[in-house]
Amino acid sequence: CHSECLGNCSQPDDPTKCVACRNFYLDGRCVETCPPPYYHFQDWRCVNFSFCQDLHHKCKNSRRQGCHQYVIHNNKCIPECPSGYTMNSSNLLCTPCLGPCPKVCHLLEGEKTIDSVTSAQELRGCTVINGSLIINIRGGNNLAAELEANLGLIEEISGYLKIRRSYALVSLSFFRKLRLIRGETLEIGNYSFYALDNQNLRQLWDWSKHNLTITQGKLFFHYNPKLCLSEIHKMEEVSGTKGRQERNDIALKTNGDQASCENELLKFSYIRTSFDKILLRWEPYWPPDFRDLLGFMLFYKEAPYQNVTEFDGQDACGSNSWTVVDIDPPLRSNDPKSQNHPGWLMRGLKPWTQYAIFVKTLVTFSDERRTYGAKSDIIYVQTDATNPSVPLDPISVSNSSSQIILKWKPPSDPNGNITHYLVFWERQAEDSELFELDYCLKGLKLPSRTWSPPFESEDSQKHNQSEYEDSAGECCSCPKTDSQILKELEESSFRKTFEDYLHNVVFVPRKT
């Protein structure tokens, strides 16, 4: 048989008469490798580009789960590009990614509803959504962080984005990388972005840091009482949809009607710091009717980097990364020049730590249904340095008659930039024990000054392991946590139920 035959053949030295091919099969003959313009397919066939392209389009058009959109890589027609490569849609070739590779997620039936953290986790790592997304989240724990972890990498949506009755959302900033909504599939009414009845939605994105392009379709905003109209108009300008909307697409009466839409800028007039305090004062603000001013709200939190936005980490279910302080308005003076500047002394802060701070007014709604208010920009203030805590785990070892090696770990709280350490030492008198000992005694162990690591005695271990207080009263049991108490109650309830079950099964009433 021919060298490319495997198993047997019907005619000697003829690659077209093989029972099976050793390498690849091409047009009725066995070959060692697939010549151009053919590609290896499933490690035994040679196919042309049209064959591989037909497989790709067949799966793409069917949208069946589990099928493969075949691509070409290293002269092979394979189910998908290997790690580190992405497909070129024009020629199906796998090309190296520039940075992290995109991950295209194809949605069944063309859309997916995100109504819980669990459903959001199914899209973790996706960068391109081939379909439409509907966000409908009523509640949950730590929602802002969970949504950002699972949806934060999405850069492109081919269909539309719909935010509907998501009472738990305060902001859409968890879509931190969303840059493009194509609108290839539109919501009824030709809408590519749809926001309806979101009672706590206050911000779409921080438009000073976020760009969003909507290729096709219109915007729809109705019944978002805490979303200011200025935020919607800003989205029109940034996304390129200005002029597409009709009169009733953006409701003037049901958007922002319960919001404090600040239209003035508060400026800080005085800032002073110490290692654990920050004193702030800002310019006074009074609405047209000074009785509408209820006070100020001061927001602050630790910020290692200057990239904080107002609604980071917030949701309507209680999660809030900001510390909020309510401040009463100052006494009002008739003389504008003698107006008191409101302020606040922030206490209990960490030394040498940068804080993000902003302040906003708290006002009631005027009778004319106009909203007044003022808010400052987010500023960054760093507390002063102070003395560091003591170095940890000092170790001293003498390696000769004239040297001592000293080692330690950095302090747990540096409280500033540590530039150097101060080492103090003092000579001590020799131990009298060394002169009084009889060095001729056998088995004498000389006193040693070398360091030995501390260890816990058996008594201390027994005390720590004991669940009861000892007789001397030195140790006591740790208080039980809520989960331990709940577990004990469940076990007790189970024992009672099981005992009742045994009584009912074992003891049967005697027939009379």
Score class of each variant (00 low, 15 high):
Glu236Trp: 08
Asp257Leu: 03
Pro288Gln: 04
Asp326Pro: 02
Thr254Arg: 07
Leu331Pro: 05
Tyr372Asp: 06
Lys242Met: 14
Glu122Lys: 14
Ser173Lys: 09
Val363Leu: 13
Ala195Thr: 05
Gly295Asn: 07
Cys317Met: 02
Thr353Pro: 00
Pro329Arg: 12
Ser400Glu: 10
Lys253Asp: 03
Arg347Trp: 10
Leu107Cys: 03
Ala251Glu: 15
Pro288Glu: 09
Gln339Asn: 12
Glu302Phe: 11
Gln121Thr: 08
Lys112Leu: 07
Asn307Ser: 11
Arg291Gln: 08
Gln382Ile: 11
Leu345Met: 06
Thr127Tyr: 11
Gly140Ile: 07
Glu264Pro: 11
Tyr300Phe: 03
Arg244His: 12
His233Gln: 09
Gln339Val: 11
Ser269Thr: 14
Thr118Ile: 05
Trp352Leu: 11
Gly183Arg: 01
Glu155Phe: 15
Gly217Pro: 01
Phe174Tyr: 14
Asn141Phe: 06
Lys375Val: 15
Lys162Trp: 11
Tyr285Thr: 04
Ile157Pro: 00
Pro288Phe: 04
Leu229Gln: 14
Thr215Val: 13
Thr273Ala: 15
Leu294Asp: 07
Leu169Arg: 00
Pro410Glu: 07
Ile357Gly: 01
Thr323Lys: 13
Lys177Val: 09
His233Asp: 03
Glu156Asp: 02
Ile181Gly: 00
Leu180Asn: 06
Tyr194Arg: 10
Arg176Thr: 13
Gly240Asn: 08
Thr383Lys: 01
Asp326Phe: 12
Met235Arg: 00
Arg332Pro: 06
Met297Val: 11
Thr118Ser: 07
Asn334Thr: 11
Leu172Ala: 07
Gly373Val: 11
Ala259Gln: 14
Thr213Met: 06
Gln121Pro: 05
Phe221Val: 13
Ala374Gln: 05
Leu252Phe: 04
Ile114Thr: 01
Met346Tyr: 01
Tyr160Gly: 12
Ser132Asn: 13
Glu264Phe: 07
Ser274Trp: 03
Asn248Lys: 09
Gly131Gln: 01
Gly159Asn: 04
Trp322Pro: 02
Glu231Ser: 14
Trp282Gly: 00
Asn198His: 00
Arg332Gln: 03
Gln382Asp: 03
Gln306Glu: 12
Gln403Arg: 05
Ile278Thr: 03
Trp322Thr: 01
Lys234Arg: 13
Pro342Ser: 07
Asn198Leu: 04
His341Asp: 08
Ser166Tyr: 02
Val104His: 11
Ile232Ser: 02
Arg370Leu: 06
Asp276Arg: 02
Asn387Gly: 15
Tyr285Glu: 01
Ser366Arg: 10
Ile163Leu: 04
Asn224Trp: 00
Ile157His: 01
Ala195Cys: 14
His341Ala: 11
Asn141Pro: 08
Leu266Asn: 01
Arg281Phe: 04
Asn340Arg: 02
Thr383Arg: 00
Glu184Trp: 09
Phe193Cys: 02
Glu246Tyr: 08
Thr241Ala: 14
Thr113Met: 03
Asp115Tyr: 05
Lys267Ile: 14
Thr361Leu: 12
Val359Gln: 00
Arg247Leu: 11
Gln245Pro: 12
Gln258Asn: 04
Ile114Lys: 01
Thr185His: 09
Ser274Arg: 09
Asn130Thr: 15
Leu362Tyr: 14
Leu143His: 03
Ile327Pro: 01
Asp257Gln: 02
Thr118Asp: 04
Val325Phe: 07
Leu280Thr: 09
Phe174Arg: 01
Glu283Arg: 12
Lys103Phe: 07
Leu227Pro: 00
Pro342Gly: 15
Gly183Ser: 06
Asn399Tyr: 04
Gly131Asp: 00
Asn255Lys: 02
Phe221Ser: 07
Ser398Ile: 09
Leu133Ile: 02
Ser260Gln: 11
Gly140Gln: 03
Lys242His: 15
Lys218Met: 06
Asp249Glu: 15
Leu252Gln: 10
Val359His: 01
Asn141Gln: 10
Gly240Tyr: 06
Ile379Thr: 05
Ser321Gln: 09
Leu298Cys: 11
Asn387Tyr: 03
Phe268Trp: 06
Leu108Thr: 06
Val238Pro: 13
Cys126Tyr: 02
Ser333Met: 12
Phe193Leu: 11
Arg291Ala: 03
Ile188Phe: 05
Leu147Pro: 01
Ser119Phe: 05
Leu178Gln: 00
Pro288Ala: 10
Ile405Phe: 13
Leu229Ser: 03
Lys360Met: 08
Asp315Tyr: 13
Asn307Met: 05
Glu156Leu: 07
Glu187Val: 06
Trp322Val: 05
Val324Ile: 02
Pro388Arg: 01
Asn307Ile: 13
Cys228Met: 04
Glu264Lys: 04
Glu109Val: 08
Pro288Trp: 08
Leu204Pro: 02
Ser333Gln: 12
Pro388Val: 01
Lys277Leu: 14
Val359Pro: 03
Lys226Glu: 04
Ser132Lys: 02
Pro391Glu: 01
Leu107Val: 09
Asp115Asn: 05
Gly131Leu: 00
Asp249Val: 11
Gly159Pro: 00
Leu331Phe: 12
Leu345Gln: 13
Gly125Ala: 07
Cys261Tyr: 01
Glu187Ser: 07
Asp384Asn: 13
Ile404Ala: 10
Arg369Thr: 07
Asp393Lys: 14
Ser239Gln: 08
Phe221Ile: 14
Gly348Leu: 08
Lys301Tyr: 02
Ser269Leu: 11
Tyr191Arg: 05
Phe220Met: 09
Ser239Phe: 03
Cys317Val: 05
Cys126Ile: 02
Ile181Ala: 00
Leu298Ser: 01
Thr213Gln: 14
Ser173Phe: 06
Asp328Ala: 03
Ala149Thr: 08
Leu266Ala: 02
Leu331Ala: 06
Ala259Met: 09
Ile157Thr: 01
Gly373Arg: 06
Asp384Ser: 04
Ile181His: 01
Cys126Trp: 00
Lys234Gly: 08
Ser338Cys: 07
Glu155Thr: 09
Pro330Lys: 07
Val324Lys: 01
Ala259Val: 11
Asn248Met: 08
Asp249Gly: 08
